[in-house]
Design a protein around this nucleic acid. Structure first.
Lengths: 208, 208
DNA sequence: TAGATTGTTAATCGATTAACAATC
DNA sequence: TAGATTGTTAATCGATTAACAATC
């Protein structure tokens, strides 16, 4: 199935919008409503659904609960996703304390750091020595990791967790990493996000 | 000038790669080298440059220092960018302590929160009451804000800072916000980033 | 000069949108 | 039935890539 990243991101947005509509008491939805809620065209919504074989009812729209079930299934939300955080610095520890993941079925079950001062086995999310990561990942069958270590440590940390069996990494370190084929690395680069915003604000300012 | 977001993001990546090459002692670079460093085609590099009227030397490639000067100018890196953070929770306070912005000429000069317990005027980055945000933004001519408040508070906080003159917002709250035309809102949605990663890891697992 | 690289145009590719037959 | 909405195909749009003349 040929799909691009943007399409999958839209599926997540549809899902989130559907939960909001459901909370407001809606039971069914038209492609038009959903398009409005997410900020895309109705054609886009129907096209995205058709890619995944999701069908509604001619004239009747889509039943929200069934639609959510299908989207959740596609997005792998039908089971709890266990995730680890590598790096117990500002970003890493903020992510470990962040509550927003829970409602999405994503649970951060441990953090890892090389600094012995950061180790804390009795934390709600325990912070363990990095050298235990390998056995922890294997024992618990962890596939997803968030990488939030300093630039210079990032490649080495990635190598370690990939070798231990990690299949997907969300990397916050602001540089491009080399990963084996078995591991997907997605990037969150806050510096570049801000730089981008500043660029478009400057452009808007000049043209106004 | 017609430009898309991806093009500007590539300019940031070129810039970052050029600094690394410069640190390694390189003085000039070919479109081919830069393409490799960033993971795009050489055509893409030359095309991006031509959009902004950046030219090199036939056969001679591009002189790194001149290229950096032009890219920095386009990206607005020629002056310090002062930014505020709204929300002193886990994400907000992590961003205020994060040192990675400084080397990019981005300085977080204050944080704001409604919780009196979070106020701290003697912090390296002072945390001030939200009701002071309006006057602070106006007095200091702040144009860029990072929004890191809980979902339910996000729209109200955005309204407040937009009214005070904010022109660009990097929003971490996981919902779509309504902003006036005068203000650009970019979204960082960590839940959706993880969901996306999980999807592609699942797909890879099924097809292997 | 011969070889290599830029800058730009044309071709390709893929994603989005429009249109409309099917149908409830 | 008449009207409205889906599902899908075709058209459009825009971004990326390939090709190559210009030229150093």
């Amino acid at each position: 199935m040929i799909t691009n990243k943007n399409c999958i991101i839209r599926l997540s947005r549809y899902k989130n919008a559907l939960y909001r509509l459901q909370a407001l008491g809606f039971v069914k939805v038209f492609s038009d409503n959903l398009a409005d809620a997410v900020g895309v065209t109705a054609s886009q919504v129907r096209k995205d659904f058709s890619i995944f074989g999701i069908s509604g009812n001619k004239k009747g729209g889509y039943q929200i609960d069934l639609l959510l079930e299908k989207l959740n299934n596609i997005l792998g939300k039908d089971r709890l996703q266990k995730v680890i955080v590598v790096g117990g610095g500002h970003i890493g520890s903020a992510l470990m304390r962040y509550r927003g993941f829970e409602k999405e079925g994503i649970k951060i079950i441990a953090g890892f750091d090389i600094d012995p001062a950061k180790i804390n086995r009795s934390n709600p999310v325990p912070i363990l020595p990095l050298e235990e990561a390998r056995i922890f990942i294997k024992t618990n069958g962890i596939r997803i990791a968030i990488l939030a270590v300093p630039d210079i440590a990032a490649q080495q940390a990635l190598d370690l967790i990939c070798a231990a069996g990690i299949k997907g990494v969300l990397n916050f370190a602001p540089l491009r990493l080399k990963a084996p084929e078995s591991c997907i690395v997605n990037y969150v680069n806050l510096e570049i996000e801000l730089e981008n915003l500043i660029y478009f604000v400057n452009v808007a300012e000049k043209t106004e």
